[in-house]
């Protein structure tokens, strides 16, 4: 499964599932999830994360924290597909009898490492986990995915200072740099550039990758991690990636009920 990961095919399948969930629930952060799909596929399906769906609390597992918790719609179908919980949960998204909420909760969902959604929390939690691995002599790694808008939070940069202080080479931060936040373009609301330079200046071994070529992200994730410093990977992508009329369309950051026509149009584009 590692060498033959078909991003195109699997990306469409995940987006199809996301759409079905949004239809069922009548709501969801579509754009924020679509830009995240290939990042999560690389980690979970590319043979990067060492996890065991039958034993989600395995002490030696790698930890993935989706700090941009509003991207949960992309995470859920992948976790279900791997067997962390039954597929039937997906259609109960946001329902009172389901475990999958608009933001992921650690104590409810097998495979979810932290309850996120309030932004700017995940990196520090990940740093605590990475420090614990070192104390306990364990070789598990910690991956934290943040949003670009999330990097407006001061706590992200507090965390960045300390990840470097502790030389956490078992920690990787992936930023889903899809260039848009809720209100408008990142460059308008709170510009982050020079973004990669900021992470470098904070002491991270920093890579940039164009998410039109997710196999490059996979290559970086599988390469030998830097020594004595944390890693940041800036994933340049597009909000709403994968469906033409959702891409760069802020109306889809958080979407309510979809019309039948919208659903048909999405499925047509996904060609499944």
């Amino acid at each position: 499964m590692t060498e033959t990961l078909d991003f195109r095919k699997q990306g469409r399948q995940v987006r199809r599932k996301i759409t079905e969930m949004v239809v069922a629930a009548g709501r969801g952060h579509v754009g924020s999830a679509f830009s995240l799909v290939e990042i999560l596929l690389a980690l979970y399906k590319g043979g990067v994360l060492r996890v065991d769906p039958r034993n989600p609390r395995w002490p030696d597992r790698d930890r993935l924290i989706l700090s941009k918790g509003h991207g949960a719609l992309a995470l859920y179908p992948i976790l279900a597909d791997l067997g962390f919980f039954p597929e039937s949960e997906l259609m109960k998204y946001c329902r009172r009898d389901g475990i999958l909420g608009g933001h992921p909760e650690h104590h409810k969902i097998p495979g979810v490492e932290a309850s996120t959604g309030a932004l700017g929390h995940g990196l520090s939690i990940g740093i605590g986990m990475a420090l614990a691995a070192r104390m306990d002599g364990k070789d598990y790694r910690v991956f934290v995915i943040t949003g670009d808008g999330e990097c407006d939070e001061g706590s992200i940069w507090e965390g960045a200072l300390h990840a470097a202080k502790h030389k956490l080479d078992n920690l990787t931060v992936l930023v889903d740099y899809n260039k848009q936040q809720s209100y408008s373009d990142v460059s308008e609301v709170c510009p982050l550039e020079p973004f990669a330079d900021k992470w470098r200046a904070f002491g991270f071994e920093t890579e940039e990758v164009d998410m039109d070529h997710p196999e490059r992200l996979l290559k970086i994730l599988k390469s030998v991690a830097p020594k004595s410093r944390p890693r940041a990977i800036i994933c340049h992508g597009v909000k709403g990636k994968g469906v033409s009329f959702i891409e760069r369309n802020l109306a889809w950051h958080h979407k309510g009920k979809l019309t039948d026509q919208e659903v048909v149009n999405i499925y047509n584009e996904l060609e499944i």
Binding site: G122, S124, G128, L131, A133
Partner: peptide
């Protein structure tokens, strides 16, 4: 947050 990560471990 860091304390939370440590406590989770």
């Amino acid at each position: 947050g860091m304390a939370a990560g440590l406590a989770m471990s």
